[in-house]
Design a protein around this nucleic acid. Structure first.
Length: 798
DNA sequence: CTAGGGCTAAGG
DNA sequence: CCTTAGCCCTAG
């Protein structure tokens, strides 16, 4: 790399190899020969190239052998899979290490051992655009009429400067407001892969897909770079801009599926922006021409300062700040910057893409047509009514843009992906969407027999379905380029809250994102529920703690448990329920206790403490539905809730037992719930107000003076997790009956005979004695009870 | 921990 | 409705 010429040569090789590797039609052997022929490549270079080549090799090894499908169908569990985060290179290495040369033949039996198809699909879909394409695209961005790489190298700076300059016009009008804002938050953040939104990736899927690529890019080749320099290669920017400027329901996009967009057909700059845009553009061009700007820092360095020096003598591979860039990333970097700027600054894309041609032609081919419309050779005016005051959004400094949003969403998604494997499958699904999209587009292209017509079709932003012009909907998702008639959709178009249209592919992708997000929420909610149930179970197993709770109806407890379970199994429903605190009056005597348990008229309900108790720690600031703050709570009295008759099921829905540890170790939690009106018609309040004192005694409200209940939220104490034992299967109100086996009875009898003395029965010892025989759940009490029964049946045996 | 009363589901 | 077996609760 120290030698400029050699580094440039190396880069050229790298780019070519990478580019060729991106084609599935290229045999790896060809790549191999190329690599052989290439000069030595430093390790720090060509990472992307190696990755691409590795991917190509993987594809050749696997996809061709089994057509990529068989692998998927056969017993996946038996196959080794690969972490999607691994690089193709590593995966290939590991495969090669474990595979003999003979097995490397395509379809070799050993190869079937890996389930690599998903990995390949993923990688293929996510493979970044190769450097050469980036160069080409960058050139096609229209920055320089002569497609000079040198010009390109300054594109970023020019663009950047253009933003600033444009910003300087801030005083001039509304449009500037947006731009200034863009400039403000668009401060050229270093481009990062992670910032690429999924939908962009999806687009990459399309673009990188070999089928499509061949179709699409052969078109580019045919056209030739020079012939395209007047055509804006809008690719990403167009869509992004659209999102900024076109919140309204229907948008019309100048950008279609292809890069070869004829400028003459579209004008994307709102009239009111035009001057500014042109002005800023001119400055951009000036900057481009005064390229000292870019080289100032590194002009003296021969090395990487000119990693890509070709006949045009341009530099690439240095970022705007003069930082040296990895050769493979050089264009990626710039590309990102461009995209970044485009996202941040709605107009930037247009300035670049459209203004440039104007400038270079010294004659704006289309003056004032509305950028909102795809002008299918028709009068724009008939759509003017739909034109959205694009600047109205931006002028307010409103920077919400789809690209950024998606980026965020994607970031979230990615993080969530780490949490759940399920996300992976949907990530695959997302990739599938991209693939489907690419196939769809491919098929659409193929339908066009005449290649020229095809070019026109795409160039002119014709409907992806019918290939006709007219009033078209433009997908507002990131960089999606689908354009379609509303009528060509078999369903009513999807619009987001901002009125942006989403094509079916992007809508689906978006839906997946939302789904994953919702799933994430559900997951965390479930976790919390489990925690909650755990603590409850813990309580139940603690007999001593149970003493803290007063007796209550056995039947009601069971019912309440069941209801509780059902209730809390759907946490989300629970959230929607109202909870309030009830006052003392909420106490309900057992009234008509058909169970003859008059003696327990007022008892603390063990079950009533549950959720609510847990909910309330110290949250004075929580919203309180304080209508019925119970005196009881405040005073620490215990409250009983009871339903008359045996219909208390519903009442108990909200009741939950609490973990005694809380009441003992911690503070109490009190809470009451208001039973939904449907539960009661007699107007009696049915919520339980429960409090447990920390001393293990009866309820005491001391600690919870605030007696605030969270309205709808269940909160867990921090300590809760500390005490949570392994999650029990389910909360049970009562142990399941376990019939005694003959063997158990025998061992019991033995134990009694062995240990009993003086009328005392050391059940504990007996239990230990017969532990190998006794059922797991047997307790000393069980033994005692059983013995009692046995004695009842045959007193003599004793 | 033990003893004893009680509760409840299941079965008749 | 009664009986039974097993589980629950509470006092000591």
């Amino acid at each position: 790399m120290d030698d400029p010429s050699s580094s440039a040569t190396t880069l050229a090789w790298l780019w070519v190899i990478e580019y060729l590797a991106s084609f599935q039609q290229i045999e790896p052997s060809i790549l191999h020969e190329l690599i052989e022929a290439a000069p030595e490549i430093p390790d720090d270079l060509g990472k992307n190239t190696r990755e691409m080549v590795a991917l190509r090799c993987l594809e050749d090894l696997f996809c061709r052998s089994d057509n990529g499908i068989a692998n998927d169908v056969t017993s996946k569990e038996l196959k080794a899979t690969f972490d999607l985060s691994e690089s193709c290179e590593d995966v290939l290495q590991s495969i090669l290490q474990e595979t003999s040369v003979s097995d490397l033949n395509r379809g070799g039996p050993k190869l079937l051992k890996w389930d690599i198809h998903p990995f390949i699909m993923h990688k293929r879909a996510c493979m970044p655009k190769c450097a050469l394409e980036k160069v080409k695209d960058a050139i096609l961005e229209g920055i320089h009429p002569y497609a000079s790489l040198k010009e390109y190298s300054e594109l970023v700076n020019a663009n950047d400067r253009g933003n600033r300059i444009t910003t300087d016009h801030g005083d001039d009008g509304a449009p500037v407001g947006r731009i200034r804002g863009s400039d403000t938050d668009g401060q050229i953040n270093p481009p990062e892969e992670s910032s690429i939104p999924v939908l962009h990736e999806s687009e990459n899927v399309v673009e990188d897909n070999s089928y499509n690529r061949n179709l699409l890019h052969s078109e580019r080749e045919r056209s030739g770079l020079a012939s395209q320099n007047l055509a804006g290669d809008h690719e990403d920017q167009g869509c992004v801009d659209g999102d900024h400027l076109q919140p309204q329901a229907k948008r019309f996009k100048e950008d279609a599926l292809h890069d070869n967009l004829s400028m003459g057909q579209i004008s994307t700059t709102p009239p009111q922006h035009k001057d500014m845009v042109e002005d800023s553009f001119e400055r951009v061009v000036e900057d481009s021409e005064n390229r000292d700007f870019h080289l100032e820092k590194e002009s003296s360095q021969g090395g990487l300062g000119r990693p890509v020096e070709n006949d045009h003598g341009e530099d690439v591979g240095m970022d705007r700040h003069g930082h040296r860039l990895d050769a493979d990333n050089a264009f990626q970097h710039n590309q990102h910057e461009i995209a970044h700027n485009a996202n941040k600054m709605p107009l930037s894309g247009d300035e670049i893409n459209h203004a440039e041609p104007r400038k270079s032609n010294a004659a704006p081919s289309v003056g004032t047509s509305d950028r909102l419309f795809v002008n299918g050779n028709k009068d724009n005016s008939d759509h003017s009514g739909q034109q959205k005051p694009s600047n109205s959004v931006s002028s307010n400094g409103f920077h919400r843009n789809t690209g950024a949003d998606e980026r965020e969403a994607d970031t979230d998604h990615l993080s969530e992906e780490d949490e759940s494997n399920e996300s992976d499958e949907y990530e695959h699904e997302r990739v599938d969407v991209g693939l489907k999209k690419s196939h769809f587009l491919s098929s659409q292209y193929m339908l066009s027999h005449d290649s020229l017509a095809e070019a026109n079709w795409t160039d002119q932003n014709l409907c992806i379905k019918c290939r006709k012009d007219g009033q078209l909907l433009v997908c507002g998702a990131g960089s999606c380029s689908l354009v379609i008639h509303e009528n060509c959709l078999v369903f009513s178009p999807h619009f987001d809250e901002r009125g942006d249209f989403y094509c079916p592919f992007c809508a689906y992708s978006l839906a997946i994102s939302e789904y994953l997000e919702a799933k994430k929420k559900a997951y965390s909610a479930r976790k919390e529920l489990e925690l909650f149930i755990e603590t409850r179970q813990e309580y139940r197993s603690n007999k001593d703690a149970q003493r803290l709770l007063s007796k209550r109806h056995g039947s009601s407890r069971q019912n309440e448990d069941k209801d509780l379970l059902n209730k809390f199994l759907d946490y989300e429903n629970l959230v929607g329920e109202k909870r309030k605190q009830s006052n003392n009056q909420g106490q309900i005597s057992e009234g008509n206790d058909h169970r003859k348990r008059k003696k327990k008229q007022v008892e603390p309900l063990a079950s009533c403490i549950g959720v609510n108790s847990l909910c309330r720690e110290e949250e004075p600031d929580v919203n309180v539905s304080s209508n019925h703050i119970s005196n009881v709570e405040k005073e620490g009295e215990e409250v009983v809730q009871e339903n008359s008759s045996g219909t208390e099921l519903d009442i108990n829905q909200h009741q939950v037992s609490v973990d005694p540890k809380y009441s003992v170790d911690n503070h109490l939690c009190k809470e009451k719930e208001i039973v939904s009106g449907s539960q009661r018609t007699d107007g009696r309040r049915q919520k339980a107000v429960c409090a447990i004192s920390s001393d293990g005694g009866e309820t005491s409200g001391d600690e919870d003076d605030k007696s605030i209940s969270t309205n709808y939220f269940i909160r867990f104490r921090k300590r809760e997790r500390q005490y949570t034992p392994p999650m029990p299967a389910m909360p049970q109100s009562r142990r399941k009956k376990v019939p005694w086996t003959v063997h158990e009875e025998e061992i019991l009898k033995e134990g009694v005979q062995k240990f009993a003395s003086d009328g005392k029965y050391p059940w504990k010892d007996i239990l230990e004695y017969g532990s190998s025989v006794f059922s797991n759940g047997r307790t000393t009490i069980d033994l005692k009870d059983k013995w009692r029964n046995m004695c009842k049946l045959s007193p003599k045996s004793k």
